[in-house]
Design a binder for these strands. Structure first.
Length: 254
DNA sequence: AACATCAGCAACCGCCCCCGA
DNA sequence: CTCGGGGGCGGTTGCTGATGT
């Protein structure tokens, strides 16, 4: 069965990074009408994007309960364990990590966790590079979460398409399990916190829209502490699912 | 300071599955 | 039962910033 491509390039549909305006349009539209039909949504909302692109943008970045970046040690270990059992079923893994998306988990796996789980000697890289690699790994082991997230987050203010990274930062506060993490957080939060995010979300959920929001959107909003999308309940959820999973694993090995 | 290389991440692409007509 | 549309998933790509030379 051959199907017409979702995104017909002849229609002049836009590709590439989303702009702040496009994000606003999408969020406002979904807040008002939900997303019963992704294919029709961009046309109805007045976006020059294909439905898939809209869905991806919403599910991976714009949904209110999304956490961004700064994976805690617990989350990393959970991903590693789940991946060992499930393989590349990113959506299933993401389902066990509240607020995390399959795309993000997939990226983290390929960029960080895979190296840790399957450390392979570098045949082609120079010794200097190998040392760099090793020191990076050491850093990961000794001072999680990833330092690299810092560098990318500091540039959010300059982006056309700002990410709702306030949730990522706040999530680190609540998921950090040791003093080193907290120290790291203090440096990051106050030096690099992107001011745009609070404005961004307050705009999105401003009064004129919230009166007509669907019930589920209200729920999501109510789950948002001031600029934060992650609380201890979610954390408990993760523990719960992790326990369920690990118990299941144990049983399968008996 | 300039250039090269690497790492991280957002987004696209194509396939598959599910469900309704 | 078959077909077709829509959504979801996983793999991959390409851009951008960071780091090294």
């Amino acid at each position: 069965m051959v199907r017409a491509p979702c995104c017909d390039q002849k229609m002049g549909l836009k590709k590439g990074p989303w702009t702040h305006e496009e994000d606003q349009i999408l969020i406002n539209y979904i807040n008002l009408h939900g997303h019963p039909n992704w294919r029709a949504l961009p046309k109805l909302a007045g976006l020059l994007r294909c439905g898939k692109s809209c869905r991806l943008r919403w599910t991976n970045y714009l949904k209110p309960d999304i956490k961004r970046g700064n994976f805690s040690r617990e989350e990393e270990e959970t991903i590693i364990q789940l991946h060992a059992a499930m393989g590349n079923r990113w959506s299933a893994i993401a389902a066990k990590l509240p607020g995390r998306t399959d795309n993000e988990i997939k990226n983290v796996w390929h960029t960080h966790l895979k190296k840790r789980v399957n450390p392979k000697p570098n045949k082609n890289t120079s010794k200097v590079q190998q040392n760099v690699e090793e020191s990076k790994e050491d850093n990961l082991e000794s001072s999680a979460p990833f330092d690299t997230n810092l560098s990318t987050q500091t540039s959010y203010n300059e982006l056309d398409s700002p990410q709702p990274s306030s949730t990522s930062i706040s999530s680190s506060i609540t998921t950090s399990t040791n003093d080193n993490d907290n120290l790291w957080m203090e440096d990051m939060v106050f030096d690099n916190f992107p001011e745009i995010d609070d404005e961004f979300w307050s705009e999105v959920f401003s009064g004129e829209n919230s009166g007509e929001l669907p019930a589920d959107v209200h729920e999501n909003i109510s789950q948002l502490p001031s600029g934060c999308g992650y609380d201890s309940n979610v954390h408990d959820d993760m523990d719960f699912w992790f326990n369920v999973f690990t118990r299941g694993e144990e049983l399968t090995h008996i």
